[in-house]
């Protein structure tokens, strides 16, 4: 009985290895590459013929002249897309509370005129460490700093944030968000085309 079932098991395992381990992923890859080639290859953004990033993978920004992205817990540098990771610090861990307060202090010292509460997503690390988004409010609180830095009118910048705001699906699925890399690429474009006062 054992010998018979071992033989059956071997044959079934080999055939399933071929079907689900080779044919299935190869077939899905072929169809995906034909129908959704941009998405299947990482939603790479091309500007002037060169790849500048992925629309789905965040990049770190903390120069005063850019919209900042969320903190990232990946090692050894933030937004390391070859090794995703979250902080996994617990809510009560002093290291986390200190990091959050430090992030708030940095944001406030970069713009001393800012008095409203800092949106929580801007001072907490995402689960993946690669979150490409911040909330629309987190983008808006940064507008005065960036306007001053480049001498661009804040009205233009608020409009740019609005333009980049993705709403929840049907109004309730998911959360409203702004893609930081796409926003900053357009910000660079705005500066070059003379979006000055």
């Amino acid at each position: 009985m054992v010998a018979k079932h071992t033989r059956t098991g071997l044959v079934v395992l080999v055939m399933f290895t071929v079907i689900t381990g080779v044919i299935y992923p190869v077939m899905v890859t072929a169809v995906a590459q034909l129908t959704f080639s941009h998405e299947a290859n990482g939603s790479i953004i091309i500007r002037d013929g060169t790849a500048v990033g992925s629309a789905l993978i965040g990049q770190p920004f903390d120069s005063p002249g850019y919209f900042w992205s969320r903190p990232s817990a990946t090692a050894p540098f933030p937004y390391n897309a070859a090794a995703s990771g979250g902080s996994n610090l617990s809510s009560m861990n002093p290291a986390l509370v200190e990091r959050v307060h430090h992030a708030v202090a940095r944001i406030r010292s970069a713009d001393t005129t800012m008095h409203q509460p800092v949106p929580v997503d801007l001072v907490t690390a995402s689960g993946s460490g690669l979150d490409p988004h911040i909330s629309p409010d987190a983008a808006r609180v940064q507008v005065p700093r960036i306007a001053r830095e480049h001498g661009i009118s804040s009205g233009l910048l608020y409009a740019l944030v609005d333009h980049h705001t993705e709403r929840p699906l049907f109004g309730f699925f998911g959360a409203p968000r702004v893609n930081v890399l796409l926003l900053n690429l357009d910000l660079d474009g705005l500066r070059q085309t003379g979006g000055t006062r």
């Binding site: 969320r70 979250g86 902080s87 996994n88 610090l89 809510s91 986390l96 959050v100 949106p119 929580v120 997503d121 907490t124 690390a125 995402s126 689960g127 993946s128 979150d131 988004h133 911040i134 909330s135 629309p136 409010d137 987190a138 808006r140 998911g174 959360a175 409203p176 968000r177």
Partner: peptide
Amino acid sequence: GQPGGNMEGKEVR
């Protein structure tokens, strides 16, 4: 305009 709550370890989307 923002999710609020405990966003450590969570994605904005």
